[in-house]
Simulated assay, not measured.
Amino acid sequence: MVELPLSFNIPVRPDLSGPPATPKDAATVMLLRDVDGGVEVFLQHRVKGMPFAGGMTVFPGGGVDKRDADASVAWAGPAPAKWAEWFGCDESLARALVCAAVRETFEESGVLLAGTESSVLEDTAQYADVRQALVSRELSLAAFLADAGLTLRADLLRPWANWVTPAAEPRRYDTRFFAAVLPEGQHADGLTSEADSSGWQRPAEALADAEQGLRMLMPPTWITLNELGEFKNAAEALASPREISKVMPSLVREGDKVRVILEGL
């Protein structure tokens, strides 16, 4: 059992006697890059008014769009069936999760994990207008990649974890975590309405900021940053063996605060 060292306000359903909300499928991506002496991860500080995780520091990500399961997407790397095996889900959902990971990363950071079967994009500036069309849902990822003649590069992603929002919370997500290295030539930005600041930081520094009250981290982010801090570089992190199982924290209310308890870690 692990108990996180911080307590903070977490929304809890007023009536816990009823059934919990059904978790929505979601994907989040830890973008990594190497710096002198270690690895950095791209983090975003979510706008306080957001209905979920407002004010929290997170990795880029979001909910699955039903169009993310479009089987027409040109694909390079591990097949959806392999992702289904890793994440313990059906093949259609696995495809949607990988596509959502690529789409959300592009929408929220401008990093696009796509190219051809033998090369990866080095500059995404020409797709700025498309990025906004994806955000507004005017365009699907499948349609964008087909029109641009691009291939989704699933081989740039690695499965990392699977976290489920506690049953006591009113909004719940079944989120699969991915890791990826920032492609050479590309740049991550903060041009998203969902975050008021974004940037690169070493995991240990982000955790230190949280301990000092300078940022707020959800339990999955806290644990993941601890895990990332153990690696010397991004390649080592992506090469590390991962056993994916669903983890759902439990909440213990103490006055106006909530403690987070993690079983099985």
Rank of each mutant, 00 (worst) to 15 (best):
M1I: 06
V2G: 00
E3F: 08
P5L: 09
I10F: 01
R13Q: 11
G18V: 15
A21D: 01
T22S: 12
P23D: 08
D25C: 04
A26R: 08
T28R: 12
L31C: 10
L31F: 13
G38I: 11
G38N: 12
F42Q: 08
F42W: 15
H45D: 13
R46G: 04
R46I: 13
V47D: 03
K48F: 04
G49M: 09
M50E: 14
P51E: 11
A53M: 15
A53R: 06
G54T: 15
M56Q: 13
V58H: 01
P60M: 05
V64Q: 00
K66V: 06
R67F: 06
R67P: 00
V73R: 01
V73P: 00
A76T: 05
A79D: 12
P80I: 00
P80R: 05
P80F: 00
P80L: 00
F87D: 05
G88I: 09
G88Q: 12
G88L: 03
C89E: 11
S92K: 09
L93I: 14
A94H: 08
L97F: 02
A100S: 13
A100T: 15
A100V: 07
R103N: 05
G110D: 07
L112D: 06
A114H: 01
T116D: 10
S118V: 14
E122Q: 14
T124E: 01
Y127T: 11
R131I: 05
Q132C: 08
V135M: 04
R137G: 02
A143T: 15
L145M: 13
D147A: 15
L152I: 15
P159A: 08
A161C: 14
N162K: 10
W163Q: 07
V164P: 06
P166S: 14
R176K: 15
V181P: 02
H187G: 04
P203G: 05
A204N: 13
A208L: 13
L214S: 03
L214N: 09
T224C: 00
N226M: 14
E227D: 12
E227Q: 10
E230I: 11
K232F: 00
N233Q: 07
N233F: 03
E236A: 15
A237G: 09
P241G: 13
I244M: 02
V247W: 02
V247P: 00
L251Y: 07
L251V: 13
D256P: 06
K257S: 10
K257V: 07
K257M: 13
K257F: 10
V258E: 03
I261E: 04
E263G: 05
L265H: 02
L265E: 01
